[in-house]
Amino acid sequence: MAEPLLEVRDLKVSFRTEDGIVRAVDGISFTVDEGEVVGIVGESGSGKSVTMMSVMRLITDPNVIYQGEILYKGRNLMQVSRDAMREVRGEEIAMIFQDPMTSLNPVYTVGWQIEEQLNEHYDLKKGQARRRASELLAQVGIPRPEQRIDDYPHQFSGGMRQRVMIALALSCNPDLLIADEPTTALDVTIQAQILELIKDLRRDFGSAVVLITHDLGVVADIADRILVMYAGRIVEEGNKEQIFYDPQHPYTWGLLGSIARLDRPKARRLTAIAGQPPSLINRPKGCSFRPRCPQAFDRCRAEDPQLTVKVGDGHLDACHLSVEDKRARRDATISPELADTA
């Protein structure tokens, strides 16, 4: 098998704060292959953004502490020089952020902001960068790009602005596109359009995509593989079918239970996961999800579950329950109708 595009090995990211060390990301490993779409799902504070920000080395907080390796095309990004890192950013790995309202500089035209990136990475003649920027705007579906190129971000709607962000991110044909909650700040109808756009562009540009979201519904359609994060760790990993039709970790059940689904015949109550995410400062012994987990038993308090393959090929989870137990309890408690489709 070919070397993965991105390989994260035992990454730990912590922040020194007044109250102690916050372990935002606590030892996670995963890979992203070329052209693959990976969804990272988890609630706020689960460490999903911090992980991908670390890949870009975009965390500017001086109190950050990193451990582990981030291998991109075999190179450890944790160790490359600042200048080499700058060449990676934008050109090799690009990023789209959550809030298109604030992610573009309000005092420059959108054209200027795309051209700035092009000029940073390529030796372009005057006019070339502008032509390319205009093409990109057309590609992301902005009407009349030749005119809109001289508009300022505030003259665009939210959805259009996110399109501009995508044009910006794709301007240098990156091999990896990180989309951090790209649809969260948008209206539902616009969300679908943006997701569709990302899907289409991935095909045209051939980039791998890491899609960060708190909403499993967002990745349902687009992701090849899904990582579920909880409290700075990956609790379940698998392909789309595995996660949606045979979820192993009780936390994943919870996430699935909280999606409103129109394709289900029966009106069903949406279930919520009780309680709050744990403190990332004093992580007590045992499973991090235990205090919120209705299925917890003695072993969960004593022993920290490891992420291992338990069910099938490439399907990993971190839960002490046996596979049979899990399936039985899941089908009984969370969503009985899953059993029909599994």
Binding site: M56, L58, T60, R82, R86, E87, V88, R89, G90, E91, A94, M95, F97, D99, T102, S103, L104, N105, P106, E116, Q117, E120, H121, M165, L168
Partner: peptide, 23 residues
């Protein structure tokens, strides 16, 4: 410095000096 668009500028691979002066 905490604004999202400064983070965007960094994500574009622009030099720190240019991020500071132009953004």
């Amino acid at each position: 410095e905490n604004e999202d668009y400064v983070r965007t500028a960094r994500a574009k691979g622009i030099s720190e000096r240019r991020v500071l002066l132009r953004h």
